[in-house]
């Protein structure tokens, strides 16, 4: 019997199997954002309604919800009414939509279908803002506290209760 092979082999086997097993819990495509707790990257983008540009600095110390989306993405459209409704009801939180690779007409249509815009929607030409926020897929939503720090990032469409939870979090923090 070779004790070295036995012990060494079993250690290597155990480690390999453990590592492979640990992979089941994770989606290999979900990217964790390193921007959490950091200052949100600035942007200055044109509004889809033609009312000039909007930059992060103009949010004036309010907590903010920044939602990256597009009309060609089904889940984004499922999520849109949730956001619009929350924005209409939420006091003291600024919602911003940033649309990526899309056509203004499509966006206006989508908004109109849910009772019109409740917050500014910006067009991100060339994806500068999306890249600055490390967006890897749409929809993705970032929650900023009043000091402009990113508190959380949510990939995928938000449900109303999830959204309310995050809103409470950013209202309470950063003061």
């Amino acid at each position: 019997m070779k004790a070295g092979i036995l012990i060494g082999g079993l250690v290597v086997v155990g480690a390999l199997v453990a590592v492979l097993y640990s992979g089941f819990g994770h989606d290999p495509r979900a990217i964790k954002s390193p921007l959490i707790h950091r200052t949100a990257p600035d942007f200055s983008l044109e509004r889809v309604d033609g009312k000039g540009t909007l930059s992060l600095a103009q949010l004036e110390g309010k907590p903010a919800v920044i939602n990256f989306w597009a009309t060609w993405c089904d889940p984004c459209k499922e999520e849109l009414p949730v956001l619009l409704q929350a924005a209409r009801g939420a006091k003291g939180v600024q919602f911003v939509g940033i649309v990526y690779e899309d056509d203004p007409a499509n966006i206006e249509n989508a908004l109109a279908r849910h009772g019109g815009a409740a917050y500014p929607t910006l067009i991100d030409k060339g994806g500068h803002a999306a890249i600055a926020y490390g967006v890897a897929g749409v929809p993705e939503t970032f929650f900023l506290d009043r000091t402009g720090h990113i508190v959380a990032k949510f990939p995928g469409p938000l449900e109303p209760d999830e959204l309310q939870g995050y809103l409470a979090e950013i209202r309470g923090s950063g003061s």
Partner: peptide
């Protein structure tokens, strides 16, 4: 099938290590 496959892999690995360690001599 992932977990099933991993179980099979683990069994094969342990079997091979044991066999090699015990019988190589």
């Amino acid at each position: 099938i992932g977990p099933t496959f991993l179980t099979f892999l683990a069994l094969c690995l342990v079997f091979s290590v044991l066999l090699l360690a015990l019988r190589m001599d």
